[in-house]
Amino acid sequence: MLTDGSDVRLTEADAEGEAGRARGRSVLAGAFALLEVLADAEAELGLTEAARRAGLPKSTTHRLLEQLCGMGAAEHRIRGYGVGPMFGRLCEGRGRTHAWLRAAVGRPAVRLAKLSRSDVVVGVSSGSEVLVVATFAGHSARLPVLRPGTVLASPTPLVDVLFNGAEEALGSARAAGLSCAAAPIHAPDGRVVAALGVLGSCPAELARLRYLVVLAAGEAARELTGSPRVR
């Protein structure tokens, strides 16, 4: 079949576009990897150590760090690199979102903690993991093992309801000796925006509490209904 070559040019353009998008994703992933290692470091990191921890070439690390410093996400200090003021503002913004979420789920979570005499946790998605953003002590007033800021990887019931579409889940909370029963909290448009879980040392007892967990998650969803900040 005769062709004027336009289909070949289109294919080449598509290939270049895909390559450009792949490079963009790679650069973005590298920048976030560097921000993560800087945030986790107890002190500023030198160029070589930052590159090693992020798993990036030294030249790439230097280029990305200078770009991040230019936009305020990182800063070049006397002994190396650390997170910059923009990083702090981003964290503050997320903290305000979590404060709003804690206020919305507070009443049903406190009621669940009292009725179950167990600790209650609220988690949101953070990449492929769950970030605990609120904890409520049960009747025993025992401090929750899963404190705000704890990151949970799969498998946990909180992961199941946030990522796997489960309407309720029961299993290990990946905390010493604890199990968890969890249910999703839905936004008015049906999206799952958080997970509510109750913690305990006896899986059989938590199985009996699943109904209360589902009710509390539903009440928390109704608290969200009138809020314009659910997007």
Rank of each mutant, 00 (worst) to 15 (best):
G165K: 09
Y81E: 09
N164Y: 11
G20S: 13
V124N: 06
P85Y: 07
G95E: 14
P85T: 06
E205N: 09
R89L: 07
M71C: 12
F136N: 04
R231N: 11
A137V: 00
R210E: 12
A217D: 06
S59Y: 12
L178D: 01
V120W: 00
R9T: 12
V161I: 14
V213N: 03
R111D: 14
A173W: 04
G46E: 08
A182I: 02
A54M: 04
V122S: 00
R191Y: 05
G20L: 15
D189Q: 10
A73Y: 15
A39W: 00
R229F: 15
G197Y: 00
M71T: 14
T150E: 06
P184N: 08
G149T: 08
T48K: 14
R147D: 01
S118W: 00
E49K: 13
D7S: 10
F163D: 03
S125W: 03
G165C: 13
T61K: 04
R96T: 11
E42L: 07
A216D: 06
G20V: 10
A50C: 05
A43P: 08
E92F: 08
L112Y: 07
G80E: 06
I185P: 03
V198A: 00
A194P: 11
V120S: 00
E66A: 09
V132S: 05
F32T: 07
C69L: 02
P228F: 03
G17R: 13
A175L: 02
R89E: 13
G17V: 08
A134Y: 01
D160V: 10
P228K: 03
M71H: 11
I78Q: 14
L224P: 02
L56M: 11
D14H: 15
A39V: 00
V193A: 06
G138T: 01
R107C: 08
L131A: 01
E75L: 09
L101K: 07
T48F: 14
G177Q: 12
L65P: 03
L45F: 07
A204T: 11
D7V: 08
P57F: 03
H186T: 01
A187T: 09
G88L: 15
L56F: 08
A207N: 09
P57N: 08
S140K: 14
L199F: 01
V124W: 08
R9F: 10
L170Q: 04
M86H: 13
P157I: 07
H139S: 10
A207H: 12
L158H: 10
A31E: 13
S227A: 12
A221P: 12
V133H: 04
H62L: 15
R117F: 00
A50R: 02
V110F: 02
S26T: 13
S154L: 09
C91H: 10
P203E: 09
S26H: 13
V133C: 00
G165P: 11
Q67I: 06
V133A: 02
K114C: 07
L47A: 02
P184I: 04
E167Q: 15
T156N: 05
M1G: 15
L65F: 03
G106Q: 14
P155A: 05
A216F: 01
D14R: 15
T156E: 01
G171I: 01
T135I: 06
A15L: 15
F87D: 08
L131Q: 03
G80I: 09
A194V: 11
D189G: 07
E18R: 15
V37P: 02
G171T: 01
V110Y: 01
A19Y: 10
L101A: 07
K58R: 15
V83K: 06
A195D: 04
S118P: 01
R229S: 12
A54T: 04
